[in-house]
């Protein structure tokens, strides 16, 4: 199976990636090889087998803990600044993005 240029364009859109002509062509070539590999999964008879998402699930019951939804200290300006320091654009404790609504 091979993907068309439209297929790749659609995937890129879903993944928020931009692709020029050259990278579209490259992705098409790559996908042909990759699909050839992952399609071999269809050869396995998995009737009656439950999907396994957690690596220890087959041997023990797994419960994922949820963190309590409470902010952790310190609630200081310095802590806030440390978090915002990596933002490409920030102002007044807020992340700035291009105008969305005129």
């Amino acid at each position: 199976m091979a993907l068309t240029e439209q297929d790749i364009t659609r995937l890129a859109q879903l993944a928020s990636l931009q692709m020029d002509r050259a990278s579209l062509a490259q992705a098409q070539t790559d996908f042909t090889r990759i699909l050839g590999l992952i399609e071999t999964l269809q050869s396995v008879d998995t009737t009656g087998i439950e999907p396994m998402a957690h690596p220890l699930e087959a041997r023990q019951s797994v419960t994922l803990r949820l963190q309590k939804d409470i902010p952790e200290p310190p609630h200081t300006q310095a802590a806030l600044d440390a978090c915002l320091r990596n933002a490409p654009a920030a102002h007044d404790g807020l992340f700035l993005v291009p105008t969305v609504i005129e």
């Binding site: 993907l3 790749i8 995937l11 890129a12 879903l14 993944a15 990636l17 992705a27 996908f31 990759i34 992952i38 999964l41 269809q42 396995v44 998995t46 087998i49 439950e50 999907p51 396994m52 998402a53 699930e57 087959a58």
Partner: peptide
């Protein structure tokens, strides 16, 4: 892109869930 493909509508069961069944 590969991840987006195997999780997309129509392929999720054939690839993603099948991979997780093989994982078990």
């Amino acid at each position: 892109l590969v991840g987006t493909y195997v999780l997309s509508h129509g392929y999720y069961d054939a690839y993603y869930l099948q991979a997780q069944r093989v994982r078990r």
